[in-house]
Simulated assay, not measured.
Amino acid sequence: MSQAKEDFTIGVEEEYQIIDPATRELRSRQQQILPIAKKTLGDLVQPELQLSQIETGTPVCRNLSEVRAELNRLRRELIAAAAKDGNQIAAAATHPFSEWEQQQIAPKERYQALLQDYQQLAREAITFGCHVHVGISDPEMAICVVNRARVWLAPLLALSASSPFSLGTDTGYASYRTQIWGRMPISGPPLIFSSQAEYQTVVEALVATGAVEEATKIYWDARLSERYPTVEFRVTDVCMTVDEAVMVAGLVRGLARTCYEQALADKPFPAARHEVIRAAHWRAARYGLDTELIDVEEKRAIPAGELIEKFLTFVRPALEDYGDWDEVSALVQQTMQQGNGATRQREVYQRNGSLEEVVDFIVAETGKGLA
Rank of each mutant, 00 (worst) to 15 (best):
V45E: 03
A211H: 13
S163M: 02
A93H: 09
P139V: 04
G86W: 10
T209L: 04
A301V: 06
R177E: 03
V231K: 11
V202M: 12
F361L: 05
I180G: 04
L34I: 10
S52D: 04
Y173I: 03
E198N: 13
V348G: 13
S329G: 10
R76I: 00
H281A: 02
L355I: 05
K217M: 11
L224Q: 14
L64I: 05
D237M: 06
M247Y: 07
W100H: 08
G168R: 01
V134D: 07
Q17E: 04
R68T: 02
G11I: 00
I192G: 03
H274A: 11
Y260L: 01
S187K: 06
T241P: 13
S160W: 06
V146L: 15
T209R: 08
M247D: 04
W220S: 10
L293Y: 12
V151F: 00
G288W: 10
S195L: 06
R177W: 01
F269N: 05
E357K: 15
A91L: 07
P268D: 11
Q102S: 15
T171C: 06
A272M: 04
F193M: 13
A342K: 13
T343V: 14
F269C: 04
E101W: 10
L121C: 09
H95Y: 00
E66W: 01
R110C: 02
Q120V: 12
T209H: 09
T178N: 14
A81C: 14
Q32L: 01
I10S: 05
T335L: 09
G210R: 01
R316A: 12
D20M: 00
V238F: 03
T201D: 14
P47F: 00
S52T: 11
S163G: 03
Y322R: 12
